[in-house]
């Protein structure tokens, strides 16, 4: 609970404070919309509608432009995501060395498709074009860990480590 006695969970209050600090640090800097969106997504894990509206108010940028930018870039997510993000590389090197088969198997293991999240919010599945480790292709990345030299059979053992 919040100190002031209202019913807002302390966690939310904390996030709002972080957001305030974010606004302060970019106030008056030109071209700050994208870094602000990136910062807000780092705080909330995604970009809730209310936060986007708040960003529009704080920066004086019309909401239509804020939404326009947020939907243009692949990095921004407008709905909640899983605790673990699985990114399967489908870049050229990985494609030539069987990345599609890895992707198929991951979909089977997690029972979700591209850009989907498991109902228990444990995993979100995404694809990416090159993680820059082509020498280890085929490659997947789970959160910040890169797993290379993969074969479909290895995936199960990798995914169990992420709860």
């Amino acid at each position: 609970m919040c100190e002031c006695g209202c019913t807002q969970p302390a966690e939310d209050v904390q996030k709002e404070r972080e957001l305030e600090t974010l606004f302060e640090s970019w106030r008056g800097v030109k071209g700050s919309l994208i870094p602000i969106l990136q910062g807000a997504q780092a705080i909330y894990g995604y970009l809730p509608r209310e936060v986007l509206l708040q960003i529009a108010r704080e920066t004086g940028i019309p909401p239509s432009r804020v939404f326009g930018v947020a939907t243009f870039y692949a990095q921004f997510h407008l709905s909640p995501r899983g605790r673990n993000i699985v990114r399967v590389c489908l870049g050229t090197a990985c494609h030539v060395r069987g990345g599609a088969r890895i992707f198929e198997r991951v979909q089977q293991e997690l029972e979700i498709g591209n850009n989907e999240t498991t109902p228990d919010l444990r995993f979100t599945l995404e694809t990416v074009a090159c993680l820059g480790c082509c020498g280890l292709s085929p490659v997947i990345m789970v959160n910040d860990d890169t797993h290379g030299r993969l074969a479909p059979d290895k995936l199960k053992d990798i995914l169990v480590n992420y709860q």
């Binding site: 919309l33 940028i61 432009r65 930018v69 692949a74 990095q75």
Partner: peptide, 20 residues
């Protein structure tokens, strides 16, 4: 922020300016 087209020079500048 994850858009291939931003490698194109004029798109890249638009992106630095905080636009699509």
């Amino acid at each position: 922020a994850g858009a291939f087209v931003c490698g194109e020079e004029t798109a890249l500048m638009a992106s630095i300016e905080g636009r699509r």
